[in-house]
């Protein structure tokens, strides 16, 4: 009766220290995460602030005029659009089919491991090297000359490894037991892939492809030697303004345009440079947002 009952939940020294470390880790990881946001916000705010005087619908829809000191960025904008479009038309089927082969058909042997190693290494190749490769392979060896097609092929090669890798990962996320169940019912591998595996991994695959849009639109080096040009006379309105470049034409592109007006040309208003950069960043953010929204939508329909 006289002695106090001991508290069964009393803290030991070890638990006290554990709690302290727990709090420290929580706070420091939170801080680091917040630090990430600072550069992103800083870049966007700075760009938009500097670009504000130039930003308008006309800036988007007009062609550059008077040695790029007036007008807008329609020519480069539409050029980037077609560059991305053509490169994806080339890279997406090849990358997705290669991913399907590697994940669904390939046996685990030295050849498969070699191919996987090649894909990983291709992803690590600097973009300027891709540019030089494109110059040698497409422009000279295949005789395409510098044109939209050669640049698109080069960009396609650059985006392939990520498309292949994301396809493989998306396919691998479909449980093996689904495949086994189908095989046991006498379905062929392809029937299983078509009816079960692809419908349930398409969101992951498309996310990977969409993320490569941003990359294809942003890189300058691969198109530097393979088809981009400083300035070309294109129509200001009508059908020809919508499709100003053929596959065998050289073309303007946003990334290259920005590089030129920032370093090579005099008397370009500062707001034009920042305006071009802001439009590029805006495009990248827009595309990424679409991909994230798409992923959320498809994930909400996840079937298991």
């Amino acid at each position: 009766m006289s002695s106090q009952p001991t508290n069964p939940f009393a803290e030991t020294e070890e638990e006290r220290r554990g709690k302290l470390v727990e709090n420290l880790v929580g706070i420091s990881t939170l801080l680091m995460t917040w630090l990430l946001i600072i550069p992103v916000l800083a870049i966007i705010i700075f760009l938009v602030y500097k670009a504000w005087p130039a930003l308008s619908i006309e800036f988007l829809l007009d062609n550059p005029e008077k040695k790029m000191t007036a007008g807008g960025i329609w020519g480069p904008l539409i050029g980037t659009f077609f560059l991305v479009l053509v490169s994806l038309i080339i890279a997406a089927p090849i990358g997705i089919l290669a991913g399907v082969y590697l994940n669904e058909f390939a046996r685990d042997n030295w050849l498969t491991r070699f191919i996987n190693l090649a894909v990983v290494n291709l992803a690590g190749v600097p973009s300027i090297v891709h540019g030089l490769f494109g110059l040698g392979a497409f422009v000279y060896f295949l005789g395409m000359d510098r044109c939209l097609l050669a640049a698109s092929c080069t960009v396609a090669v650059m985006t392939l490894p990520v498309i292949i890798t994301s396809t493989k990962e998306a396919l691998a996320s479909v449980p093996m037991s689904f495949r086994v169940a189908c095989w046991n019912m006498g379905a062929t591998k392809w029937q299983t892939i078509r009816t079960i595996v692809l419908p349930n991994s398409i969101s992951g695959i498309l996310t990977g492809v969409i993320l490569q849009v941003a990359r294809a639109a942003g890189e300058t080096a691969p198109i530097l030697f393979t088809g981009a040009m400083i300035s070309s006379r294109i129509a200001d309105s009508g059908w020809e303004a919508m499709v100003p470049y053929g596959l065998d034409d050289r073309f303007m592109a946003l990334s290259y345009h920005l590089y030129i007006i920032s370093t090579q040309w005099q008397n370009v208003p500062e707001s034009f440079k920042f305006g071009t950069a802001a439009v590029m960043i805006g495009l990248v953010i827009a595309v990424n947002s679409i991909s994230i929204a798409f992923r959320i939508y498809l994930r909400s329909r996840k079937k298991w």
Binding site: V180, I196, K303, W304
Partner: peptide, 9 residues
């Protein structure tokens, strides 16, 4: 098989 597998359809 021992583990139930409903296909995602």
């Amino acid at each position: 098989f021992p583990l139930p597998v409903g296909l995602p359809m």
